[in-house]
């Protein structure tokens, strides 16, 4: 299982990475592997604000669907429109081209409270 050492993680197998002033968000390699062939992503609208834990969208595979939870509170600034036509990128490059949304957050401490890469690796190892 691939892990991005520069990202932080949620228990729902989502990652968040700092990108300048903003944050990028996606699902982990473990998550895409569990879902198998991803066929569709339902995005939030840019400009929408969410609290941490809110459902912002859905990822669908052939046989499953998983809600996307906002890991820390923030406002969506951009969604990765490429995924609309080529959702399979989420399977092939979940930490890179497969980012799902970009958002800005007013409280950087929330980011720090997410799970570290080392701890996330342990967490998935246990499953």
């Amino acid at each position: 299982m691939k892990i991005d050492p520069n990202a932080r993680y949620s228990k729902e197998h989502e990652w968040v990475r700092k990108d300048g002033e903003n944050y990028l968000y996606g699902i982990t390699d473990h998550a895409q592997d569990q879902l198998s062939d991803i066929v569709f992503i339902e995005f939030p609208e840019p400009g929408e604000s969410f609290a941490s834990g809110d459902i912002i969208g859905v990822v669908e595979s052939v046989k499953a669907a998983a809600d996307l939870y906002m890991p820390i509170s923030g406002e969506i600034t951009e969604v990765n429109e490429h995924l609309a036509d080529t959702p399979e990128i989420l399977n092939s490059d979940p930490f890179g081209e497969g980012w799902i949304v970009m958002f800005k957050s007013s409280d950087p401490s929330e980011f720090e409270s997410l799970i570290s890469a080392e701890d996330y690796e342990k967490l998935t190892g246990e499953e």
């Binding site: 669908e60 052939v62 669907a65």
Partner: peptide, 12 residues
């Protein structure tokens, strides 16, 4: 497009 359906999405 089965993830719309009850056997996968259950209450959603």
């Amino acid at each position: 497009l089965s993830p719309r359906e009850q056997h996968i999405r259950r209450e959603k």
